[in-house]
C-alpha cells in the first residue's frame, strides 16, 4: 500500500527525483483521493489541513463575490499542486477549490508533513525548494492577469 503510494508520489512532477528515504517519509502522510465533477474540495476560511497533488482531472480555484458569482482565477491540472497554504500559519484556505472534472489526486496530511519537515530539515528544505518556484511562478502569472493584457485600449 505505502509502496504503491511511493511509486505514485515519485511519478508526480512535484516529487520527481525526490530522495528515496524522503519519499518513504512523505508517503506516510499521503493518501489517494477522488472528487466528482462539481464537488468542492475545500472552502475559503476553513483550516488548511491538506496539500493536493493532482494526478488526473482539473480543479478550479475560485473567489466568490456577492452578485458576481464565483470568479475562477486559476485552474490546476495533472502534475500540478494546489493548497499551498498548508505550510505556514495561519493554515487557512483563502479561496475555494472545486473539481471541474472527475479528479484523482494525492492528498497530503498537512500536520503530518509539517511534522516530518520540522523533524528533518533536509526534507523540509527539499520540499521548500520544490514549492517556492511554484509560488513565484503563480505570483508572476497573477501579475500578468492583473495587467489585463488583452483588454482593448481604445
Amino acid at each position: 500500500m505505502t509502496e504503491n503510494l511511493e511509486r505514485i508520489l515519485s511519478e508526480h512532477r512535484f516529487f520527481h527525483g525526490l530522495d528515496k528515504a524522503f519519499l518513504e517519509l512523505a508517503a506516510g502522510c499521503a493518501k489517494n483521493v477522488r472528487f466528482e465533477a462539481g464537488q468542492f474540495i475545500f472552502h475559503e476560511g476553513e483550516a488548511a489541513d491538506q496539500f493536493y497533488l493532482v494526478r488526473e482531472g482539473r480543479v478550479a480555484l475560485q473567489v466568490s463575490a456577492p452578485g458576481r458569482g464565483a470568479a475562477t482565477f486559476l485552474t490546476i491540472g495533472p502534475g500540478e499542486v494546489f493548497g499551498v497554504n498548508w505550510l505556514l500559519p495561519p493554515f487557512r484556505w483563502v479561496y475555494d477549490a472545486k473539481a471541474l472534472e472527475p479528479t484523482r489526486a494525492i492528498s497530503m496530511d498537512a500536520r503530518c508533513l509539517r511534522g516530518k519537515c520540522e523533524s528533518d530539515h533536509n526534507l523540509g528544505y527539499d520540499i521548500m525548494m520544490r514549492l517556492m518556484p511554484i509560488l513565484i511562478e503563480r505570483l508572476h502569472e497573477t501579475r500578468l492577469q492583473f495587467l489585463d493584457l488583452y483588454k482593448s485600449h481604445a
Partner: peptide, 14 residues
C-alpha cells in the same frame, strides 16, 4: 482565459 466565471469549464490562467 485570464478571468472566468463558474460556467467556464476550461483552463483559467495566463
Amino acid at each position: 482565459v485570464d478571468h472566468a466565471t463558474d460556467e467556464w469549464r476550461g483552463h483559467v490562467g495566463v
